[in-house]
């Protein structure tokens, strides 16, 4: 097993909280501009991570809520930030943030679901926006969004599930459209989508779980596809799916936890894709979320289907 330096054997909670807090404050960096088009997701990753760390009080939820609302368009959809077009990816992030801030009553739920509904295709799939890109990621966004808003009946859930099921490959994984190669990120979106649609019977649980557990490499980390390098983000993509399928025991959780902890930047806070790489808020969230799924480091529990703290989904969905 990879040796973990002493300073990284624990989750550096305060350092990560400071790192995430500062990420939201730094507005004069190249990254700030380069990531502007997906800032909505960035804020969601950061805020959810803060909740898991028990540091949500550090965040100005009123300001965040106002900002999220400022990104909504007339058609009901949300953009990646104020200056960007509406898209399903960011509409889900916006709904997730508002759920975390207890501010779902600030939006017109029917209007948002109307937007989501407008993107469903005759075959049950979803386009990401009016420009027609189809991907099972968008199926997940649509299902999660409508369910969180208590509006699942607004879309054709059965058709959505059967499209997702049609993207399952012979290795048990899922691709972005039928026939395309399995990818762990896509497996999470498809398994979680089927879970929301109450259609997990459509997949071969053992086969999917076996493909997922084969993602663990010698390093303890998980990769996204066969013969690829491990990366902290798959601590979420693979693990959440294994958790939904009730097969977390099929991987070596201890080794994975060590790998994640070893990717912490003990000086500046944050978690990177692999040890000694530069950290970012995306990997920081997925590392913490992975540890939370495994019940480690006294973190708040995360819901593997909705990628939100369990306290939030319990409140919203009563589960």
């Amino acid at each position: 097993m990879t040796r973990v330096p002493e300073s990284r054997r624990e989750l550096l909670i305060d350092k990560h909280a400071d790192y995430i807090y500062n990420y939201g404050q730094t507005k004069d960096s190249f990254e700030f501009y380069a990531t502007e088009h997906f800032r909505m997701s960035g804020v969601y990753w950061g805020l959810t991570a803060m909740h898991l760390l028990g540091k949500q009080h550090m965040m100005d939820t009123a300001a965040i809520t106002d900002w999220v609302l400022s990104c909504q368009h007339a058609n009901g959809g949300f953009g990646g930030s104020e200056r960007h077009d509406p898209h399903l990816l960011y509409t889900l992030s916006a709904v997730q943030i508002l759920a975390l801030c207890g501010a779902l009553n600030r939006i017109n739920k029917e209007q948002v679901t109307q937007y989501v509904r407008s993107l469903q295709q005759p075959d049950g799939s979803f386009a990401g926006d009016d420009w027609g890109e189809i991907d099972t990621r968008f199926s997940y966004c649509a299902l999660s969004c409508c369910k969180l808003l208590g509006q699942a009946q607004a879309i054709d859930v059965k058709a959505a599930a059967s499209y997702v099921a049609s993207c399952q490959n012979i290795d048990g994984g899922f691709g972005c459209t039928p026939g395309n190669e399995s990818h762990a990120g896509q497996v999470f979106t498809c398994v979680a989508a089927l879970a929301i649609a109450d259609s997990l019977h459509l997949l071969d649980k053992d086969l999917t779980s076996w493909w997922l557990c084969e993602r663990q490499t010698e390093s303890g980390g998980l990769n996204g596809r066969p013969e690829k390098l491990q990366d902290v983000c798959y601590s979420w993509w693979c693990l959440s799916a294994l958790s939904i399928l009730g097969r977390l025991s099929w991987i070596d959780q201890e080794a994975l936890a060590c790998f994640i902890l070893n990717c912490q930047d003990e000086n500046r806070g944050g978690i990177s894709d692999r040890p000694e790489d530069m950290v970012d808020v995306f990997h920081t969230f997925f590392g913490i979320a992975g540890l939370s799924l495994m019940g480690r480091c006294n973190l708040e529990a995360i819901d593997p289907v909705y990628a939100l703290p369990e306290t939030t989904t319990r409140q919203l969905l009563g589960k």
């Binding site: 048990g172 053992d206 086969l207 779980s209 076996w210 557990c213 084969e214 663990q216 303890g220 097969r247 025991s249 099929w250 991987i251 070596d252 080794a255």
Partner: peptide, 17 residues
Amino acid sequence: PKRKGYYDDALAGKASV
């Protein structure tokens, strides 16, 4: 050993791929 959990289940007939 990383996939011991799977092999145990397979042997017990609880995992059929």
